[in-house]
Design a protein around this nucleic acid. Structure first.
Lengths: 243, 243
DNA sequence: CAGTGGTCTAGACCACATC
DNA sequence: ATGTGGTCTAGACCACTGG
C-alpha cells in the first residue's frame, strides 16, 4: 500500500499522523499502553516495521515511551520523576539532584494584554489565570514563576486544587485539565531584581537575576502556557546541553 | 554474525563504534563522504540495514550528515552556516538571523589553575591559551568570551592566524588544529558586570549580564575547551528549545 | 543513466517482563 | 510459557543527485 505523488510523504509518516491524532483524541489516556506493534500494523494495514518507524518517531518527540518487554505507553508528566528534568533546567550548583519545593504566592483571574494574547494565540481581553509561585532549591528561594494560562482551558483552577496536587505542575495540568505540555521554547536574559522579586527571592534589589521566558505547546503546536521565571543564581544554575 | 553475551550489545552499536573509531582516526576527513552503505556492509560483514542503523545513530549525534542521493558525509563546522546555530544560542530579539562579528581582544599563553585543569582534564600548571573576544550583534557588543584551550592541542595558535580565518571559531579549530567540537554543556547564571566587562560590552558597571559557562567535548567525550561568555541581553537573548 | 540514501516488506530470532 | 519491544536479514522498490 504505497502512495506516490509529487508531494511525497512516506507511509510511516502517514501512520505517525494517524497515531498522533488518536493520541490527541484521547483514545489512550496518559500513561496507558497503546496496542502492540503487530496489532497496530494489522489495524493500519502495513507491516510491523512501518509501524515501528512511526512509533519511533513519536517516541523521539517524547509523545510515547517504549519499554522493552512491556509495551509502548503514552508519555505522561506524572510519575516522570526521572525524565521530568526535561522541563526543569534549574539545577543545584553542588550537583545534588533535588526536586524544588513550590510555594503558591498568588492565583488570580485576569485579562490578556496584547503581548500575552499574541503569544497564547487568544484575543486581547480573554480571561487568563495568572499563577505566581516560588520554587525552593538547596533551602533557598530559587525561582519566582509567573505562569499565565488561558482560562478556557483551565476552568476550575483554584489555589486549593493547585496546592492539593502532590506532583509536578505539568502533571497537574495534564491530570486535572487534560492539557499536555509537549514542548517549550525559552528565551533567557539577565535582568535586575525589582523590589518585589528581590523580596520573594531573598536578594538585594538590583541584584542580577536570570529571566526565563517560556512558551509551552500542546498538540498541534498550540501555545497553552506563557511563563516568566526569575531565577536567583546563587546556589543554582540553568543547565543546557548542546548536542 | 551475532554476539550473544550477558552484557548484550546490539550488532549495530558495535558497527557504530567501528565507524566512530574510523572517524576519530581521520580515515575520512571533515566534509568528506564516507563509503556507501552497501560498501560498509560488505566491509563489516553485516547487512545494509544494520549499517543504516549504525550510521543513523551517528547522524543523530551530528557526527555524520546524510544527503539523499549524494551520500553520507563527515559533519564539519565549516560550511555549516545553517546548522552552526547549534553552538550559537545567542539570537537577536527582533528575530533577524545574523552571524555575529568577532573582535579579538587578547590572546595569551597562561597556565591552568586548579579549576580550569579539572574541567579540561589536564594538570595544574599545564600551558593553555586564553582567548578573549567580543561578539557584535545588531550593531552592539553582545558577548564577551573568554576561551581557554589546552596549548598542547592548539600549538601555533596566534592572533594573526585567528584573525585571518574567515569562518566560525569551531571551523577554525577543526580545520587548522584538527580538533572537532562534538558537543558541549553549559551552565547559565546571572552576574553583575565588573568594570572591564562593562567597558567592553558598553553597559554600566553592575548591570546584569548573562554568564554562559561552557565545556566542549571532542571524540571520546574528552573536554577540549572551557569558555565563559558574558552576554549583555539588551538586543539579544539566549534561545533554547525544550523538546 | 548509475549511484546514493530512503522506504517497505516478511520473516526469523533475541532480550526483557510477566504470569 | 507468552507477549512485548528490539535486532537482523534479504530483497524489492522509490526518491534524489549528478554526469
Amino acid at each position: 500500500m504505497k502512495t506516490s505523488s509529487p508531494t511525497f510523504q512516506p507511509l510511516y509518516l502517514q501512520i505517525k499522523g494517524l497515531v498522533e491524532r488518536a493520541l490527541e483524541a484521547g483514545e489512550w489516556g496518559p500513561g496507558a499502553a497503546i496496542p502492540a506493534e503487530v496489532a497496530l500494523a494489522a489495524r493500519f494495514g502495513v507491516s510491523q516495521g512501518t509501524v515501528r518507524k512511526a512509533i519511533g518517531a513519536l517516541a523521539d518527540e517524547n509523545l510515547l515511551v517504549r519499554k522493552q518487554g512491556k509495551g509502548t505507553f503514552v508519555a505522561t508528566h506524572t510519575e516522570e520523576r526521572a525524565s521530568n528534568f526535561r522541563f526543569l533546567r534549574v539545577r543545584r550548583n553542588d550537583g545534588q539532584t533535588e526536586y524544588p519545593g513550590s510555594r503558591l504566592i498568588d492565583l488570580r483571574r485576569a485579562r490578556a494584554g496584547a503581548e500575552t494574547a499574541r503569544r497564547l494565540g487568544i484575543r486581547v481581553g480573554d480571561h487568563v489565570f495568572v499563577l505566581r509561585r516560588v520554587l525552593d532549591l538547596a533551602s533557598h528561594p530559587a525561582v519566582l514563576d509567573d505562569i499565565t494560562l488561558p482560562a478556557v482551558l483551565f476552568a476550575g483552577l483554584t489555589r486549593a486544587r493547585y496546592a492539593a496536587y502532590p506532583g509536578s505542575t505539568y502533571g497537574f495540568f495534564e491530570q486535572v485539565f487534560g492539557v499536555r505540555m509537549l514542548r517549550a521554547e525559552e528565551r533567557l536574559t539577565a535582568v535586575a531584581a525589582d523590589a518585589v522579586s528581590a523580596g520573594l527571592l531573598d536578594v538585594e534589589p538590583g541584584a542580577p537575576l536570570l529571566a526565563v521566558d517560556r512558551v509551552s505547546f500542546t498538540y498541534g503546536d498550540r501555545p497553552v502556557e506563557v511563563r516568566r521565571g526569575l531565577c536567583a543564581t546563587r546556589h543554582v544554575h540553568y543547565w543546557n546541553a548542546l548536542a
